[in-house]
Amino acid sequence: MVDPFTLEIWLKRLLLLCVIIFMVFLKLLPLQSGGSNLPWPDLILCFMAAWAIRRPALVSLGMVVVVGLATDFLFIRAPGVWTIILILTFEALRVQARREGTMSFASEMGIIFVVFTSAFIANRLILLAFGVAQPPLGATVLELFMSLLFYPLVALITVFIFRVRHPDPTDLQGLRGRG
């Protein structure tokens, strides 16, 4: 008999992976290939962050690496840079989530703001340091802004549709132990 906690964790991980694959798929569809000026929010980052801040165990290191590398390769970015940043971002989120436990939405938004902004800045700095061609600054800032704007919506979907919430104090033992 499979331990129900383990089963739940793996089911939720699979669900997150499906959501991410769907997002990648949407981005790859040749629907608006021309030059619409408004960049899309980085929904993959939003979803992963919304899950990680609630249940760090659900966004494992392996998943972050696989998703980071796959999207780097598919979206014609410099392979590895965004992956490194994702790994560090989710390590930071994991530490934060462990320290804070259940948090209010305002403090969650605060953490997300700091983490996303530093991720975008770090990305630009690394690319700058290695002399890789970069998109214009304005567009990147706009994408960061859009991501922050869409984050509450993603958090809502995460809580009310996918039912990923901060763990109750009652089942804390079961979930923490497998973090």
């Binding site: 990648v24 981005k27 040749p30 290939s33 960049p39 998109p135 990147t140 994408e143």
Partner: peptide, 11 residues
Amino acid sequence: VAADSGSSFRR
């Protein structure tokens, strides 16, 4: 045309 670049900045 089979797919897009997927990135907001690459065309």
